[in-house]
Write a protein that binds this DNA or RNA. Structure first.
Lengths: 158, 158
DNA sequence: GGCATGAGTAAAGTTGCTTGACTACCGTAC
DNA sequence: GTACGGTAGTCAAGCAACTTTACTCATGCC
């Protein structure tokens, strides 16, 4: 996925080049993603697949319009509505017309959808706790702080 | 994709809960991924699509067996061979039988494949330089250091 | 009212995968 | 030396998660 490597390795150099930040970001991202899916399945939300997680991106779909969710997840509105249709069929959300403007719809989490949202939060916290055991709480706090700064700093331009 | 949110927002709390580390990891990962693809297209490698990038994951496919690449990228051998087939058709790699063991094949980058690999490295370095401009070199170095520690620490168990 | 705008929908096509079944090659055991 | 088990790679069918194109409909603005 993320590639930040030399495809050709110099046969004379014993040590390969050090991994760049792109490669380093891939692992933790995928760990969270996989633990999230596995954790949801363990907790009884076994009808959710990876694609559904896109919809629950921070800060969640509650009261959002499908098109805004699509833009946030960087997919077409049709793709988003396809996924929302599945989540609705599975009982996680409903789509209701916005009473103030009949052109729009608004996504609302059902009880099951809210339960899934809380489970997701729990699972990320578990991963964080695991990392704190490995690196110590101070380093994880520092990592979170730096990532937050990076997010804020690039939020305006991207 | 990464979800680390509450799906339901407490109507009484004015401020939403702070984003967890899962949500914070998503942005930089996707930024690298998108800049990578855009940068490759700009540099003339416009026949590469996102899925191809999985193959170039650190430390790259050179002299690797398809099955090992598949395991590294966490996909089936058929999926990997499908992508390798495309890359071969596009002139980025060749697959040759391992002379020492005819059961295996080995992936070799063509000249074009090597050029793409170098371009990828360049692009990640550009992103790093951009982040250094925003946060300062010290913070980016710290971020890279922490990510490296996290990668090393979880490498054994995952 | 007429019309432009923008949200949602419907249908068809594409792609990047998975699953299942098969073949080829090697190492070991009789 | 041939039978057998294990593993790498291949072929084919099917499917999910999209994209593209073309609509319908509600609203706001003249």
């Amino acid at each position: 996925m993320l590639s930040s490597d030399l495809t050709v390795v110099d046969a004379n150099s014993a040590t390969p080049p050090p991994p760049l930040i792109g490669a380093l970001l891939r692992m933790p991202f995928e760990v969270v993603r996989e633990r999230m899916l596995a954790g949801l399945h363990e907790r009884g939300f076994s009808d959710l697949v990876a694609a559904h997680l896109d919809i629950f991106q921070y800060p969640g779909p509650e009261n959002q319009r499908p098109l805004d969710l699509a833009r946030h997840a960087r997919m077409s509105k049709q793709a988003m509505n396809y996924l929302l249709g599945e989540l609705e069929r599975l009982g996680y959300i409903t789509r209701l017309r916005d009473p103030d403007d009949q052109r729009f719809k608004r996504v609302h989490a059902t009880e099951r959808g809210q339960a899934a949202g809380h489970a997701m939060r729990e699972i990320v916290l578990e991963v964080e706790a695991d990392w704190e055991q490995r690196l110590g709480p101070a380093k994880v706090a520092k990592l979170r702080d730096l990532l937050k700064q990076l997010n804020v700093s690039t939020a305006q331009t991207v």
